[in-house]
Amino acid sequence: MNWTRRHLLGLYDLSAEEINTILDTAASFKEVSTRSIKKVPPLRGRVVANLFFEPSTRTRISFELAASRLSADVVNFEKVTSSAVKGETLKDTARNIERMGVDIVVVRHSAPGAPHRLAEVLDASVINAGDGPHEHPTQALLDIFTMREHKDRLEGLTVAIVGDIAHSRVARSNIWGLQKLGAKVILVGPSTLVPGGFRELGVEVTHSLDEVIERCDVINMLRIQLERQEGGLFPSLREYSRMFGLNRERVSKAKEDVLIMHPGPMNRGVEITPQVADGPHSVILEQVENGLAVRMAAMYLVTRGR
């Protein structure tokens, strides 16, 4: 297909065909990481700026490495060392950085829609690396890529997303992407973190993991934010873990070929036990590896979009 997008802002706007194009391109880029020289030249002479207004070491490193493997130069801009603390607006910051000759801006921001606003004012391509609880498209794409590698197709798969759905950009992007490719999504968690209103998106909502676990082809465990407990959204970590944590006993009730995923960083012993995280169903480290390929594909495609 003809790729026309200059930005990757979320999966909500993408068609199934566009998502598949990114996944197919990522499959080709995955091979690059197996070469003796793990680098290809298509972004030679281009500059990628990582603008992270929220801390995230691993996503930033993944984007940085993906850019290097495409031969781009990378500049990192983090909130702590920036003018943002001096009161400069997001738009001014981005415009200043763009003037240094930046071609792609990778942005993470706590405000939903921040990347979309930047895309309106910049000539550079914008890739959303997480905007508040709104979207995190490359994470969802790498999740879906990993599912596709193991299950061949998304159509007809049943995927459970477990945890703090209400505050999760990973969940939202996964919901859009999975539904477009024909997978069935089940959201699992306490009612305070998985409000029934999500049903309007056409997904199944349940407050009991045990009730649905036998039907799942994939279980994607989200990180439980410890600070949510202080907000009173669930009674205790032990209680959460008992109801929604993945342990060996629970996994034994699932399908024999169930895939267990986690976007990281994990709270071992809370949402997932070490035995499950390191067990035979876990593809958590493959997700990290696939993230590199997906981000290479995203950066390559947005520079080709016209």
Binding site: W3, A27, E31
Partner: peptide, 23 residues
């Protein structure tokens, strides 16, 4: 070999080549 990523005309407006993978 898929030489798409090594082409010297990648920045041309018209070219939007699909990456097919190298084995």
């Amino acid at each position: 070999l898929d030489i798409t990523l090594y082409r010297d005309d990648l920045s041309d407006v018209a070219s939007q080549p699909q990456v097919r993978g190298t084995e």
